[in-house]
Nucleic acid binder design. Structure first.
Lengths: 164, 164
DNA sequence: ATGAAAATGAAATTCATTTTCATTTGCCGG
DNA sequence: CCGGCAAATGAAAATGAATTTCATTTTCAT
C-alpha cells in the first residue's frame, strides 16, 4: 500500500533541487565517497516524490528513468541521504522502512489512517516545545522526536458507514 | 540490546494480575478462543517484566519457566495481548517489534537513548490534548498516538566525554 | 466421555534488509 | 591525458525477523 502523503509542500524548484544536490555532494566529499550518475538520479527522483517511500517503491520509480540502476544502489543511497539529513525515516504501521524528504520542510507530524494508509501532515509548534522541556528536565541531549496520531480518516469512516 | 525501561510503575500485585487475566480471558471468549496453560504463563511473564520486549526476548523469559512452550505460541499470544489492549507495540530505532504492557498504566511517552538503548518514560498531558485537538480539526477519529524523543542520555554523554 | 474446534510447536516459508564479490567507474596524482 | 587505486555498482546470496503450515495434542460444550 502506497502511503499517500497529504501535505502543504510544493514540488521542488530547479533552485532548491540544486541546493539539495550541493548538500548531498558536500556530504559525499566529507566522508570520502564519489559522485555518480546513479546517486544523482536517485536523489532527484526522491526529491520529486511526495509520498512516503519504501526502498522498493523508490527503486521502482528510479527504474522508470534508468532501468540499469539496481535495487542495492537505491538502498545504499537512501542510507546516505538519511545520513546527511535530506531523508528521514517515518515509522508506519506496516512495519516497512519508509522515508520522506526533509529538504526545505518545516517541522511537521503525521496523522495516519489505519484503514487506507493515507497520512496527513499537521503542524504543532507545541510538540517541539515539549521536546525541549523534557530534554532539559531529564538532562537528555534531545536531537529529534517522532509523533504520529493513528486513527480513521473521514473518507474511510464514511465508506464504512455505507457498507456496514 | 535489551531496551531497559526506566519508569514509575510497580510490579503487579496478585490483585491486578488477576484483573489482567480476566481481561484476557474475556477477550479470548469473545473471539471464540480457548484458555490454555501456555497463554497463562506467557501473560504472567509478560506482566512481570518491565522492559520493552521483543517476541524473542519474551520467549526466552517464558522458556525459563516452562521449556516446553514454543516461540510460535509466544508470538501468537503477544498478538492476542495487543488485540485486547494489554500490550502495545513501541517503535524503537532497532526496528524490531517491541511490546510493553498497558495494564493499569497511565498514558506515557518515551525518551530513547540512541546510544545505550535505555528508555525513560515521561508524562505529558499536553500530548494527549494535542491528539484530541488535531483529531477534531481534521475530522480524524483518533484512537492512539506515538511520541518518542530520541537523544543521548546523561550517562552516555559522560562516558563519551571520558573516552573522547 | 466424546468429538468438533482450536492450540501447539517444530519446521518451512516469506520477505525486507543487508552483505558479498566480481566487475566497472570516478578521480587524484603526475 | 594516463595509470592506478579506492570506491561504486548490481546481481546474487545471506541474513534474520515475522508468519504460515501441518501433524499432533488439548480444550470444552454437550
Amino acid at each position: 500500500m502506497l502511503q499517500r502523503r497529504i501535505d502543504d509542500h510544493a514540488p521542488p524548484s530547479r533552485e532548491s533541487m540544486r541546493e539539495a544536490q550541493e548538500i548531498f555532494y558536500r556530504h559525499l566529499k566529507r566522508v570520502g565517497l564519489k559522485h555518480t550518475d546513479q546517486r544523482d538520479a536517485i536523489l532527484r527522483t526522491f526529491l520529486e516524490t511526495r509520498d512516503h517511500l519504501s526502498t522498493d517503491e523508490l527503486f521502482r520509480l528510479v527504474r522508470k528513468k534508468d532501468a540499469k540502476i539496481g535495487f542495492t544502489t537505491v538502498y545504499r543511497t537512501l542510507k546516505l541521504l538519511a545520513e546527511c539529513g535530506l531523508a528521514s525515516a517515518v515509522p508506519f504501521p506496516d512495519g516497512m522502512a519508509r522515508y520522506e524528504h526533509q529538504f526545505n520542510r518545516r517541522s511537521h507530524h503525521h496523522m495516519v489512517c489505519t484503514d487506507c494508509g493515507a497520512s496527513v501532515e499537521f503542524f504543532s509548534p507545541e510538540v517541539t516545545k515539549i521536546e525541549e522541556e523534557i530534554g532539559r528536565k531529564y538532562r537528555f541531549d534531545a536531537t529529534r522526536h517522532n509523533f504520529q496520531i493513528y486513527g480513521v480518516c473521514e473518507d474511510c469512516r464514511k465508506r464504512e458507514h455505507r457498507i456496514g
